[in-house]
Design a protein around this nucleic acid. Sequence first.
DNA 1: CGTGAAATATGTATCGT
DNA 2: ACGATACATATTTCACG
Lengths: 173, 173
Amino acid sequence: MRKAPPDFRNRKRAEGQESVLDAIDRRILDRLQRDSTISNQELAEQVGLSPPACLKRVRALRSAGVITRTVAILSPEVLGYPMLTVARVKLELPNEAANHAFEARMAELPRVVQCMTVAGDFDYILLIRSRDVGHYQDFARRVLKLAPGIRSYTSEIVLQVHKATTEVPIDPT
Amino acid sequence: MRKAPPDFRNRKRAEGQESVLDAIDRRILDRLQRDSTISNQELAEQVGLSPPACLKRVRALRSAGVITRTVAILSPEVLGYPMLTVARVKLELPNEAANHAFEARMAELPRVVQCMTVAGDFDYILLIRSRDVGHYQDFARRVLKLAPGIRSYTSEIVLQVHKATTEVPIDPT
DNA sequence: CGTGAAATATGTATCGT
DNA sequence: ACGATACATATTTCACG
């Protein structure tokens, strides 16, 4: 009972095709993931299409889920969250209920910007935004120490972010 | 001979003020970091301003560096990069030249989506996008094993991304 | 997919508070 | 200094070939 669009346009697929995106689609995506403030006119010109044709493709790319969303990226520093920490969490028991509870908790905390499971230790890796060290310590105590089913955790303070891109490789690199 | 706006509007600052953003600015940022496809008209209505006044604020927020950029977020899965890996790298000698060379190398590799230095071990943490396990192994051999000055590295395969937001906390949480 | 026209949004100027 | 109204310009978007 799936309802989402199963694939992108009626291009050749199901043949083990690697991608259903043609060169123009890739150029559109390349531009938009760098800067989506450009007008559709400008974009159309850059990719060699008329504005309506370009717009149709962008909309198709959206509804197909290739473009998941379009957002403004804000400066954490200016907004008072200059600190970034990588935390690793180990649960007591990796059972379904405990995992789900933990993930739901992380989902609702704005300071947790990333939460993922990694192979090997049945661990979570978190990226956490904080105002300062005290603010982080507060978070660690409130959320990590007291959270149900947490066995242990480690924190690593990020000294410098050298690269943090939202871009996904497009060309067959 | 400065030309860029030295600070954000002529609000009260230099008084050790924590922030120069008022409630309306925060509402603008809140909307735009969730979805920047809304028109300025719609945004203006939502924040209770006239379209020109709203536009002026958005532009000011941009040139002040509060909004750093506006981008389309693409689906790594659809684009053929479903795999995410966290790598930790330890350099032989944490000298200036080696660090800079490594950071420059990471900056130019599209598959490296994040690169940061963490306290404690003078280490790097990388987040790497790959097509599959073989593709990552290839990367690890070419980039991590053979990179000059690398002492050791570990890789952790991300099984599931539960949360990955580009949003920064706005309200005084 | 392109062209042309209608609908809509953006951007500017000016005035008022 | 900031916002609102009104007007001009530009872009988005629809219908059609």
